[in-house]
């Protein structure tokens, strides 16, 4: 039965390699943090300018698209919410639904997926290309640790920028909801805002922010590790890019589900 042994063998190999990959990602995380804490003492501080540069690419450049998407999500939630609540004649409760689902769920999820697609792919492609053209080797032989020089700034920038984008997303989502509620139900902005602030607690906001921090780590580590492990030329870079986007988004959705379960018990 060669095909069965073959299958078992390849299953075994896949298991081993995914365990190896988890180990790699974990090590990458701790090493990045290590350089953040110890870099100064070892005369290899993380460059502030590198972090700012990454933060610009990850966060600032994504402001407009994040705002538009979250605004649209707010409108969409308002349409669906009003439609559903009409059956109970409780349309005005739509504010509650929008406030909670935007801050706890949609804003972090949409921003996470957006950044995974935008920055995750570009990080994997950039690091992968550097790997293929021996730039990573060059860093290493110059005594410039590639994790400190390339990975740490990306991880730090991601951990800072994603929550900020989510705060923006929260605001834009609520705004979208307010605009549609005004059009459909003639609820004034001030009434909408007042009601929203009544409903929202620190917990709701922080739930979204905690998620976004986890998503940030997922995106940064998955795309970095895919980039660092590229082999096989341009095709390898392409594969790593696709793989890191698919993996980031899948892990984000899974993590989101687990979080939502535990944070709402």
């Amino acid at each position: 039965m060669p095909s069965i042994t073959h299958n078992i063998e390849s299953l075994g190999r896949k298991t081993v390699s995914s365990i190896e990959e988890c180990g790699y990602v974990t090590a990458l995380f701790f090493e990045s943090i290590y350089w953040l804490v110890m870099g100064k003492r070892r005369n290899q501080a993380i460059r502030f300018s590198a972090v700012v540069n990454e933060a610009k690419k990850i966060g600032v450049d994504a402001v407009a698209i994040s705002a538009v998407l979250c605004f649209a999500i707010g409108i969409m939630l308002a349409i669906q919410g009003i439609e559903t609540l009409k059956t109970f004649g409780a349309q005005s409760q739509v504010i509650l639904g929008i406030a909670l689902s935007v801050t706890r769920e949609f804003s972090p999820l949409i921003i996470g997926i957006l950044v995974a697609g935008r920055s995750g792919s570009s990080i994997a492609a950039r690091i992968g290309t550097m790997n293929e053209s021996q730039e990573i080797d060059a860093l290493q032989v110059m005594g410039i640790n590639p994790v400190r020089y390339l990975a740490s700034p990306i991880l730090i920038a991601m951990l800072i920028m994603l929550p900020l984008l989510v705060i923006l997303g929260d605001f834009m989502g609520l705004l979208g909801g307010a605009v549609y509620s005004y059009i459909d139900l003639n609820i004034s902005f001030s009434a909408y805002a007042e009601r929203s602030f009544e409903i929202l607690t620190i917990d709701d906001i922080s739930q979204g922010l905690i998620k976004s921090v986890v998503f940030a780590a997922i995106i940064a580590l998955v795309s970095l590790s895919n980039g660092f492990q590229v082999s096989g030329g341009a095709e390898g870079v392409g594969k790593a890019t696709t793989r890191s986007v698919v993996m980031s988004i899948s892990l984000i959705v899974l993590a989101d589900m687990i979080f939502t379960y535990f944070l709402n018990r």
């Binding site: 290899q44 053209s133 060059a138 032989v141 110059m142 005594g143």
Partner: peptide, 22 residues
Amino acid sequence: ESEMHTMRKNMGVAFQGGALFN
């Protein structure tokens, strides 16, 4: 690690493809 780091300051390498940072 840190001995290697010191050693690397004493080594220069020119790779085949240059490996300049693009």
